[in-house]
Amino acid sequence: MRYKSVLLVSMCIITSSLTFNACKDGNANGTKTEASLLGKKFITAQNLNISILLDLSDRIDPKRNPSPSMEFYRRDLGYIESISNAFEGHLRSKPIIKINDQIQVYFEPEPLNAEINSLAKKLRLSFSKNNLTKESIKKMSTQFTSISEQIYKLAINDKKYLGADIWGFFKNKVKDYCIKPDHRNILFILTDGYMFHEDSKFMEGNRSSYLTSPLIKALKLQSSEYCNLIKEKGYGFVKATEGLTNLEVVILGINPAKGNPFEGDVINAFWTNWLQSMNVKGPITKPMSADLPSNLDPVIQKYINY
């Protein structure tokens, strides 16, 4: 999300071992990287519960945030296609009698466009031995990608970007919406890495419920000393909940603003520390940049079906 605002930051010193860990090398601190994910073995016995949280803020607007090689909303659609294809492959690999798998899409807040909300209901799919057929498997991924594209185009044409209340989603909904017992629960978040919504914007000491490029600048996290400053000042997100030990979280689409060579590192540190503070199931996967979908496809496929 891109927002221009003046930010006041109180300066209290809070040290955190979580922050310290996030500034180390990904493999040394219990985080997974794209390369390490490709080495996983393929297993299929588990039940999957996959949730996809879409950031439909102005980051997807081709005019505000152009990307000549591939527009960012197109990249999102590529990631969604990879996720749905992997889910479809999972269904194909299991005996029908063992099918008990779900995939769904969420927004926060709900879009004002009723048509988007109506389409979103078609992206909440639950499969069991009682409703699964070969035909439903064949068309699942295609329909999932097609409906997702309709949602993105409607959001772009409406131009009513409300932001994405990711912090509020974790505080109020993630446990109820994204965690089912006896399932492998995975939440994919498609976002540029910035976090902002007017309804949940606040500070607690040096921690915030939001992250914008102006905030990173105000915190002076624009040099190679960013990691030391994060540790010394205790910068990071306010913990929104806790006890997410049965939830894996994967961030896709990180797109730091230009002008600060350490912006992406700061975003990664904020997210990694935050997920660790809420006890998200480890090892935490390092947030992935807004790479071309063809490059991330094997990573996503392996992650879901390792």
Rank of each mutant, 00 (worst) to 15 (best):
Y152T: 10
K180L: 15
A240H: 06
N185H: 12
T145Y: 10
I50M: 03
G259M: 03
D25G: 08
L229M: 09
R184E: 15
S289K: 11
P261I: 04
L7N: 08
S141Q: 13
K121W: 01
I300K: 03
A22H: 04
P62H: 12
N85K: 13
D176M: 06
C12D: 12
N113W: 02
K63E: 14
I96K: 14
L125Q: 09
K302T: 15
S10W: 00
K138C: 05
E225I: 02
L53C: 03
R64F: 02
R75F: 02
Q102F: 07
V9P: 01
P66W: 07
I97L: 14
I103A: 05
L54Y: 06
S148F: 07
P256V: 06
Y303M: 05
E88T: 15
P181R: 12
C227N: 09
Q104H: 09
E149S: 12
M195K: 13
V174W: 05
K41R: 12
E248M: 02
C227Q: 11
K233L: 05
N27A: 13
R59V: 02
L91H: 11
I186H: 04
E110F: 10
L132D: 02
K134Y: 15
T142V: 14
M11G: 09
S128N: 15
N117S: 09
N85D: 13
Y306P: 14
Y177W: 08
I43R: 10
V299D: 03
K63S: 11
C23I: 15
E204C: 03
Q150Y: 03
K258Y: 02
Q143R: 14
L48S: 02
P109A: 07
N305Y: 14
S10P: 07
S93E: 14
I151D: 07
T285W: 00
Y210A: 11
A240K: 06
F202W: 05
E71M: 07
P66L: 08
L77C: 11
D291N: 13
G259D: 04
N255P: 00
I97F: 08
S10G: 04
V249Y: 00
L119I: 06
R207F: 01
V280W: 03
S148W: 10
S146Y: 11
